[in-house]
Design a protein around this nucleic acid. Structure first.
Lengths: 223, 223
DNA sequence: GTCTATACTGGGATAGAC
DNA sequence: GTCTATCCCAGTATAGAC
């Protein structure tokens, strides 16, 4: 009758009394759980079970479920933001900047699809309450700046920078957000295999670049 | 101490003993709730409270939460599918077909953003278990067929039909799925106002059509 | 057909032992 | 720092009155 004591089922055996490792393990499991269910519906019990510690540890380190959530957000997005700053896209011509930015963003998505899932739940459940603090909006402003430069220089057509930025990001993330649905369209393919992800990258960049290019550039392109 | 007895708070007063109205009211509220939280995290209590009936009614009419979920899916997507069949896009030249299809799809999204949210939860929570049965996949196959025709005729560039179809849908729905986050980018604008939705439609169609057009067509376009 | 009452479970959070 | 035990509310589902 009693539940079998499984404990740390999937993770490597944790050292006892290793605070840093415990915290990291909790954060890892929490990121998964929040990505799947969002802040509200995520269960601390599931996080604890996956981590191999008890629920009490979560409250010891992070005080509350919300505290844990914020810690997950910070850790998850700090890397992304650092990357975007290091790219120095302002120094490149608009077309190169856009392509490089999109390429890099897609690589992040592929590495960790949890980010966009968390953000989606954020939008639907919490009206973007925590979204403001992710620093994610700065990625958008960067993208918009590139588009505006490109329009001014004539290499992009006269598009709406904000709405186009949104559409570009949508193109990048939808594949990853919906792949569990989309796999039913092509049961033979592994949607998250490196090959398919590479194909998605290729097609996404192609459709985005063709979608924003101005006529002058389009003609030059077809010579 | 006792909870105030709110009952049918927001909806118009329901007639007592009106089965059809009760069922419809439950379905309406359930659609909202499932869109916000997905099958697992949706609360029958919230649905009942919003409807103005008791939880018991839900089980009386739909047997279980899952039964209710399936009923919601069926009702929500039957309209969409009917529409797509009536459009008769096979009869139009590819470019017209694509533009008309996208336009119509965006109109559906604007009318009821719940659909794409439900599908997202479907993907993340349930691995698309119910997605198969929505008939939504047929929309994709229709879109793919249009793209293939366009490639064959040379009015679209030689793109990957499946991945491009995914990217097109992503462009259409991302705006609606993420608008609660995106509003923080432009706090002055009402993202779901008719004007903004119209602008999104315009920009989405522009970037999609430019993104798929072949070179021949692109040149003709710029004469 | 609709309600009230309730059985039962799951899950957030805390106290206190070790 | 980590665990066990527990409190208590929330939520699914059902029984039975009207």
């Amino acid at each position: 009758m009693a539940k079998a004591k499984v404990g740390q089922s999937s993770n490597a055996k944790r050292q006892v009394r290793d605070p840093a490792a415990t915290q990291a393990a909790i954060l890892d499991a929490a990121e998964q759980e929040f990505a799947k269910h969002g802040l509200i519906a995520a269960r601390t019990e599931a996080i604890a079970a996956q981590t191999g510690v008890t629920k009490a540890m979560i409250y010891y380190y992070f005080k509350s479920k919300e505290g844990l959530y914020q810690a997950v957000l910070e850790r998850a997005f700090s890397g992304l933001l650092q990357m975007s700053q290091q790219l120095d896209l302002d120094q490149l011509p608009p077309e190169e900047a856009l392509e490089k930015g999109v390429r890099e963003f897609l690589a992040c998505e592929a590495r960790n699809p949890n980010l966009s899932r968390i953000l989606f739940h954020e939008a639907i459940q919490n009206q973007g309450e925590y979204y403001k603090r992710t620093g994610f909006p700065t990625l958008f402003t960067g993208l918009i700046a590139i588009l505006e430069r490109g329009i001014a220089q004539g290499c992009f057509r006269p598009l709406d920078p904000l709405l186009t930025a949104i559409n570009i990001v949508g193109t990048c993330v939808f594949y990853f957000m919906a792949h569990e649905n989309l796999k039913h369209l092509c049961p033979d393919k592994q949607m998250l295999s490196p090959e398919m992800i590479e194909q998605h990258r290729h097609e996404a960049i192609a459709v985005i670049m063709a979608g924003v290019r101005g006529q002058v550039n389009s003609l030059r392109q077809s010579e």
